[in-house]
Simulated scan of single mutants.
Amino acid sequence: MVSMKYYIVTIAALFVALGTGILIGVNLNESDFYLRQQQLLLEGIETKFNELQVERESYMTEIDGLIREKEKNSAFIDNLYKEIIKQRLVGYNIAIIKTTDIFYYDDVPILLEEAGANIAIEITYKDRIFNYSEEEKLELYEIFNIYDYNELIAAINDQVVNFLTFGKESEFLTYLIENQWIGYTGNKAILEDSPIHYVVIAGGSLSKEAKTVEEIDLDIINKCKKNVIPVVGIERIDAGYSYIPYYKKEKISTVDNINTIMGKVSLVYIITGINGHFGEGEYSENLIPSLIEY
């Protein structure tokens, strides 16, 4: 009986030892398997990384080529642009009126001078006109008998257009310039000796301000037309609220992308006699004037 128990215990011990050996063996095999799998995964990642490096270098070479090509194209377009506008506006006296000071239009006089024009005057309607204090309102009333906003705007428009037409600077206009209600640069001698051949009115807004358009831009346009001074309306392509539809209703030519080379060419050709609405916005009718005919 004792010997039978001994055999049973011995056999059980053998099975336990065998099971333990099998378990250890399996774990070792699985460990080797996992290590091998990790090694293969790392090798795959390294291979893919090397492929991506080669692909990146290929793209960088292609990008460098495109950059060089873009620089050559830009140089060609710039030279062509200068040839297109060269001497087109010789003998023209131009006035620029900026009805807003929130957009950059300082490149417009540079453009026109490159085309040969004389910039007789630049006038900018400052933001102060729309945000003056009660003290300033009282001062305007005491000096010029002007009390409210509408009277002020109408008076400024009158004086500006009269200055363009006759070359005479009024006391009121001098006051506005000296007190920085409006910005002014120019050559008064040109106005006194020769007429203005064209007025460039630069507008546009960040948001809807139709009242400002009607009271300033459209009033100036109509006053210029009464004095037989042609007007062209321009704005930047990034203007949030376009004045172009208002300008179009006044039957004047327009450019809505004056901050581009195409817009600059359009402006020069409009002044030389081409009519139309040029640019890239929803109110334009042609991208650029047909230069072949001119």
Rank of each mutant, 00 (worst) to 15 (best):
A202G: 08
I177N: 14
I177H: 15
L152K: 07
F144L: 05
F144T: 08
E151Y: 05
L173M: 10
E134V: 08
K188A: 14
V200N: 03
I156Q: 10
I143H: 07
I143F: 08
Y125K: 03
Y125S: 04
R128H: 11
I153R: 03
I182E: 11
Y184M: 01
N150F: 07
Y125P: 00
S205K: 01
F163W: 04
E134Y: 04
K137W: 06
W181M: 13
Y132L: 09
Y149L: 14
L191F: 02
D127Q: 08
F144A: 10
E142I: 02
V161K: 09
P195C: 06
E136Q: 13
D158L: 13
D148H: 12
I153E: 07
A202W: 00
E135H: 02
K168H: 06
E135L: 08
K208C: 09
E151H: 03
D158R: 14
K208L: 14
S207N: 00
Q180V: 00
Y198F: 11
N179F: 05
I190S: 01
Y132N: 04
F130S: 06
L191I: 01
L138K: 11
D148C: 12
N162Q: 12
I143R: 12
N131R: 00
G203C: 05
E151T: 07
I201H: 10
E171K: 04
F130H: 06
Q180C: 02
N179H: 15
A202V: 05
G167V: 02
E134P: 00
N145T: 09
Y149I: 14
E136A: 14
I190M: 01
E171S: 11
E192S: 06
E134S: 13
L176G: 11
G167H: 00
F166Q: 00
I146P: 09
G186L: 02
W181Y: 15
S133N: 06
V160N: 10
P195T: 02
G183C: 02
R128L: 15
S205I: 00
K126R: 13
K208T: 14
E169L: 01
Y184G: 01
E209R: 10
Y125T: 05
Y175D: 13
W181I: 06
G203L: 04
E169M: 07
V200R: 01
K137T: 15
D158G: 04
L191D: 03
Y175M: 08
E171V: 01
I156V: 15
Y149V: 11
A155M: 14
T165Q: 04
Y198T: 07
I196C: 07
T185S: 14
V161S: 12
Y141P: 02
N131Q: 01
K188R: 09
D193Y: 05
L206S: 11
V161C: 11
N157P: 08
S170M: 05
A154M: 06
S205F: 08
N179K: 11
N131E: 03
F163G: 07
G183E: 04
I196E: 05
A154H: 07
Y125R: 03
Y147W: 14
V199N: 10
F144Q: 10
D148W: 10
N162F: 07
F172H: 07
I153G: 05
I182R: 09
